[in-house]
Nucleic acid binder design. Structure first.
Lengths: 221, 221, 221, 221
DNA sequence: AATGAATGAGAGTTCATTCAT
DNA sequence: GATGAATGAACTCTCATTCAT
């Protein structure tokens, strides 16, 4: 955990440290990031680094947390549509996601960080940071699933955790695909539209599902 | 490239080395894997390691290649359904994928390796290994998309690269989810069924697409 | 570049490190010198070595630089005779060179270092160190040539670079010869006298040159 | 020493090995030359290498020896002018040296080898090879000095070893200077002329010497 | 509160040499 | 006679972390 000492620093110095760390982690990934380079860029001593943060992981986690906070502060609270039709549900979500992706595209270092974190499936040392990230998103996602189900927009025959995982996988794939395309913002809207279309196809109540599994009847809209 | 010297080793010693390396890479990822630990576990000298393999990357590539070969030897060739209905198309694919996942679930280290390789988006040193893996799969995947489109099973209004990326993202998510559940084989079939159902929903010709983009009219199912 | 950290060390420790490095480099040459042996002899850790110096080349360059500085501090500035006769020109130079050689003979390790550096024609990694050394000497040498020519002591029909190269070759040969003789200081003066005599014969305005090349008429002595 | 086994090889294989070694040594210097690369280029096994030669030094010495032999075979025996005037003495020598340098310029790898060997003042491991090279040349050089002295072309007041050392130093300097100029053959003759002129000035009987040292009276020209 | 000097463990890689076959 | 597999010692260099001041 970040030590309170760090929070007492003048904001501009906090920012200098976070910025230096963000750039280093984004540029080299967690493992290859060098604390020596971070403290040099931040203009602080090595002792101070360890005075503020427990260790490398702690610094990394703090950077991700801070950045995510700022990101979502800018975006405003997650809109979780309550009531309304399935179409309204998807449309609300898509609007929000588009703004999220627009923001992420504007902060590529953060995007790189998140991508790296999501992908670091084999680095146990980052498990905590991953868990943190997940914990920050999961409750909202689960709420969204529930409301989507109530709106008849999301199938009810699968665990929400699975639905969420698959949707995030699709989103990640689209993210990578988007970055490889380096689209203008105009394209971004179209791409997000396509993505949501596919997501909707994947998680919407499905006639195939009914046939295959004979699962629970879809809740009435 | 693996040197012929390695291939001349008695099979059990080749296996000992590959096994040691596989476990190390699976446990720590490519970067954090330690050659010292590998040679210790394999019971060979450091000089021998470099007598058999060019370098760390070469060893890694060899392990992945060997394991994939064995995997696909066990599975037989990719079936690419040609002709037939959309339902038949999906059913053929699902059967194969189920067998693939069954095999992967039985070799979790290999699964971890592949996952790590797919995710190593920022490690240029593995670019070759990634390219190898991709090149082995892409042609088949593209063929599958084309035949799926011909069968009316896959939408035609999006680039196949995007479709493939999204499907792989979904598959990866399911993989992770499956590994976290540590399901019995029985559950595996169900999960793969669900996955394909979602994939089908995502990439099947969509009425939404037609509405949104004014694209090509969906081929009749 | 040497890091300031090193300069802050207590002088005796700086000296211990420089001495250990000097002996190692002199004994084995740059390439065969082992940093492991240096840090062992200096009594510091491997980490400290790299805390003080960028790398092996940096250490080597520092040793040479320090030693040369001390050498020329002891000798005083290069005297560049201006005006006067050819005999006076040579006599001034000879006096300085004798003091230089006396100093070098007293510090054989430094002599070895310099010799090695001058001879390292094929080691691009030392190019910077060589360039440093050359740049420190060349301007003075060229000035000396010009003034010598003005005094009628040096021939004017050959490029100064060639003259300098040949003279340095002769000096180097004498150096080696001197070291093999391990002469008393008394002999040193005689040897330097002989060397200068030969140098004078080689680079003095020559009647042969006039005959052979039909070059500029030799300036009158 | 080269083992007789090597001499029994078919000449073309001997040549293949020597050629591979020569190129490797010339390209990387003795220390950085890799036996692995040599055997690969020569197309022999590592065991064979050590079956033919004691070790790396032995191989190096053999290459130098063979090449020098061939060089001097091509040049013919050293001409040691006996009788005649000082001018004739120098002229004979210069003619030979010009042919030597022409030959060396045509075989740059050998030239590099020799230069490296002459310069390797700090590599005790090559002491034997250096001594070999010197021993091959010294007797002739000393004979040349004696005859030169008899012809009144060379001063008699200095040990011949010193004269030889200085002359070789001058020659080496010119060699380097020549290589940096990359002259056409035409320039070579001129350069050698200049070199000999300077050599003559350096080692010819000198009035300065008589004045300075009160040494033996100079032999009459 | 803050520093920065010091370190040790470890990294990947190279290579001349040996020796059983 | 010839091979090439096997090795271990050595190499330079990196880095997160500690701790006395």
């Amino acid at each position: 955990m970040v030590r309170p000492r760090f929070s007492k620093l003048p904001p501009e110095q906090q920012q200098a440290i976070v910025r230096a760390a963000r750039e280093e982690f984004a540029a080299h990934g967690f493992h290859d990031a060098s604390l020596n380079r971070v403290i040099e860029a931040a203009g602080i001593s090595k002792g101070s680094m360890y005075y503020y943060f427990d260790d490398k992981v702690d610094l990394f986690a703090h950077v991700v947390r801070i950045d995510l906070e700022q990101l979502f502060d800018r975006l405003g609270p997650f809109p979780v549509p309550d009531g309304g039709s399935a179409d309204e549900f998807w449309s609300t979500l898509e609007g929000y996601y588009l703004r999220l992706m627009t923001a992420l595209t504007a902060t590529p270092d953060l995007a790189t960080l998140i991508r790296g974190l999501l992908a670091a499936s084999t680095t146990p040392v980052l498990a905590q940071a991953q868990a943190d990230l997940t914990q920050a998103l999961l409750p909202w996602l689960e709420l969204a699933v529930i409301r989507g189900q109530r709106a008849g927009a999301i199938r009810t025959d699968l665990p929400s955790a699975l639905l969420i995982a698959v949707v995030m996988g699709m989103g990640q794939a689209i993210d990578v695909w988007l970055m490889n395309q380096q689209p203008a913002d105009a394209d971004l809207a179209g791409s997000v539209g396509v993505l949501f279309e596919m997501i909707r196809g994947a998680v919407a109540p499905s006639k195939h599902a009914a046939v295959r599994k004979g699962g629970a009847p879809p809740p009435s809209e």
